[in-house]
Amino acid sequence: MHVPLFPLNSIVLPRGRIPLQLFEPRYIDMLTRCLKEDRGFVVVLLRDGLETSSAAAFYDIGTYVRIIDFQQLDNGLLGITVEGVSKVTVVKCWKAPDGLNMGDVEVLLDEADLPVPDALSELPVVLRALLKHPVVNDLEMTVDFDDARDVGWRLTELLPIDKQEKQRLVELQDPLERLERLHALLEALE
């Protein structure tokens, strides 16, 4: 797939949602093209630089997202909500003339559909508590609390952990390994 890349200091994973504010012309043009062509773009985590910088470096594993809502915000900016579709790897990237990051991406294999093990049963409880936060609740995400992928993906998005650690969790393809790592991180936070 040949798609726009959107470097952020945040992540989103499949079935997750994230609100974004667009104000740069390159991203408003990207939004227009995506809506017109009924396609998405890829959210990648910034490695170095700022979200507004044209020289930002980013990781090569991200998430292909679709726009599910957009509106004019009270501050005059354009707000959109995107939902993750699939994890992808960026195999080649370049800058378009307007400064937009573009890339050729390949969809990664789906992760195994596994239940949350009994030994990690407190993770869905933690996730339920995080989902009660008003900003998260407003995203109206559907979560399968028995699905190790869903629980791990949402916790990776929502927990206040270092962005390099978040990226390591994004890159894992084994949902149980991700849950075990999240469990260790939660114990370290306590």
Score class of each variant (00 low, 15 high):
Asp110Asn: 11
Leu186Thr: 01
Leu20Met: 13
Thr63Ala: 07
Phe23Asp: 11
Pro175Tyr: 05
Val143Glu: 03
Gln164Ala: 14
Ser86Arg: 12
Val170Met: 14
Leu13Ala: 08
Asp147Trp: 02
Arg26Asp: 02
Thr156Glu: 01
Glu122Pro: 08
Ile161Gln: 00
Leu20Ile: 06
Val85Thr: 02
Asn9Pro: 06
Trp153Tyr: 13
Asp150Leu: 14
Tyr59Leu: 06
Lys87Leu: 14
Leu130Gln: 09
Leu100Trp: 01
Arg47Leu: 10
Glu157His: 15
Glu180Cys: 08
Lys132Asp: 14
Thr89Ala: 12
Asn137Cys: 15
Leu130Ile: 07
Val88His: 03
Pro134His: 08
Ile67Ser: 06
Arg181Phe: 07
Ala148Glu: 00
Asp60Phe: 14
Leu13Asp: 02
Leu169Thr: 14
Arg181Ile: 15
Ala57Phe: 03
Phe23Asn: 15
Gly152Ser: 13
Val136Arg: 11
Pro4Ala: 13
Leu159Glu: 03
Asp48Gly: 00
Gly103His: 15
Val105Trp: 01
Cys34Tyr: 08
Leu73Gln: 04
Gln167Ala: 10
Gly99Arg: 10
Pro115Arg: 12
Glu177Asn: 05
Leu77His: 09
Glu122Ser: 14
Ala56Arg: 01
Glu37Cys: 00
Ala96Asp: 15
Leu109Met: 10
Leu182Ala: 09
Glu140Val: 01
Asp113Thr: 04
Gly99Phe: 09
Pro124Trp: 12
Val12Glu: 05
Val135Leu: 13
Leu50Ala: 15
Ile161Asn: 00
Thr32Ile: 10
Arg15Ser: 12
Leu20Ala: 13
Ile28Tyr: 02
Lys36Cys: 03
Glu187Arg: 15
His133Lys: 15
Trp94Arg: 09
Leu77Asn: 07
Tyr64Lys: 01
Asp147Gly: 01
Asp162Cys: 13
Leu22Phe: 12
Pro175Gly: 00
Glu37Asp: 11
Ser10Phe: 04
Asp60Thr: 08
Val43Leu: 01
Leu8Gln: 04
Leu189Val: 06
Asp104Ala: 04
Val90Ile: 15
Asn101Asp: 08
Gly79Cys: 10
Val105Leu: 07
Glu51Met: 07
Met30Ala: 13
Ile11Leu: 14
Ser54His: 08
Ile67Trp: 12
Leu158Pro: 07
Glu177Ile: 04
Glu171Arg: 14
Ala184Cys: 08
Glu190Ala: 12
Glu177Thr: 07
Leu13Gln: 12
Arg149Tyr: 11
Val91Tyr: 10
Pro25Ile: 11
Leu5Gln: 00
Asp138Phe: 14
Leu185Ser: 03
Leu120Arg: 13
Tyr27Cys: 05
Pro134Val: 09
Phe6His: 05
Cys34Arg: 04
Pro7Lys: 05
Leu155Ile: 01
Glu83Ser: 11
Leu5His: 10
Pro25Glu: 12
Gln167Ile: 05
Leu20Cys: 11
Leu139Tyr: 04
Pro115Gly: 09
Leu131Met: 07
Asp60Met: 12
Ala56Trp: 00
Ala119Cys: 11
Asp144Tyr: 09
Val116Gln: 00
His183Ala: 14
Arg149Thr: 04
